[in-house]
Design a protein around this nucleic acid. Sequence first.
DNA 1: CCAATAAAGGACATTTTTGTCCTATTTATT
DNA 2: AATAAATAGGACAAAAATGTCCTTTATTGG
Lengths: 145, 145
Amino acid sequence: MMFSKACEYGIRAAVYVALQSLDGRRVSVNEIAEEIDSPIAFTAKILQQLSRSKVIHSVKGPTGGFELDRTEMDTVKLSMIVHAIDGDDIYVGCGLGLKECNANQPCPLHDKFVDIRTDLKNMLENTSLYELATGLEVGLTYLKR
Amino acid sequence: MMFSKACEYGIRAAVYVALQSLDGRRVSVNEIAEEIDSPIAFTAKILQQLSRSKVIHSVKGPTGGFELDRTEMDTVKLSMIVHAIDGDDIYVGCGLGLKECNANQPCPLHDKFVDIRTDLKNMLENTSLYELATGLEVGLTYLKR
DNA sequence: CCAATAAAGGACATTTTTGTCCTATTTATT
DNA sequence: AATAAATAGGACAAAAATGTCCTTTATTGG
């Protein structure tokens, strides 16, 4: 609707990793894909991206998996995940696809989009994985279905 | 960023048709594609969709083309174009791609998305082609580049 | 050291979106 | 009636996004 499928899986995966990390549990790709109801191999690719972008931490070998430490959960905001996967489309792009749309040379929707985008941007930049994981932990929110 | 490419072209095309219709000019696919800087044949398909959805009016044969009458420009809102081309994804879909995300069983971002989507929805439902075309006419906004 | 386990990564397959080309249909003009 | 101009529509092509499979690399525990 707004993010790519890859980004949707990425956010859900990161939130699940955060949730389990609250209990000190490291989680595997298989478990993540199972718990967020996503295709395993594709999810593995996305987790690689997130790991390369330092959004989550990965450990190879037996007992390995993905994790986040408590401080990272606070510092990692949704905007970092979206940026790592979808790039800066949401921030930069014109709603009507113009290359050089800006306040000087705006598309007909420019001003109307500015407000909506600002709200979205603020939301993404102010929402941490910790915040999302705790909602899940308490059973208020869900990651599947 | 938010709409498909097809929808971006569709909105730009419809606004251009409205603009020219203000002067009583009927416009061809070729002229539209030229003026909004879009691929001709693809634009033709999109105009077909808009015509079938009664968003714009088409006339075949010599002197034919696309047009809108003054009353239609007021009644046609952006939401109708978006709906005709992209369906109701923007209205219905969960931000994280869950099938059954709602107030009872929300995804972690549900509440945060509700506000943003409501604003987007209101904007689309309250913006008419007439409003957008007049901005263009006065030279305040642009449809290319 | 060896075996097993888990992520990393490359190559490939499928699906969707975007885009093109050609023919058919409609209609105004002569 | 013939011609030409315009949209309608079907079939195809290319590109991007999504998704799978298999091999390599790192690491743990026996």
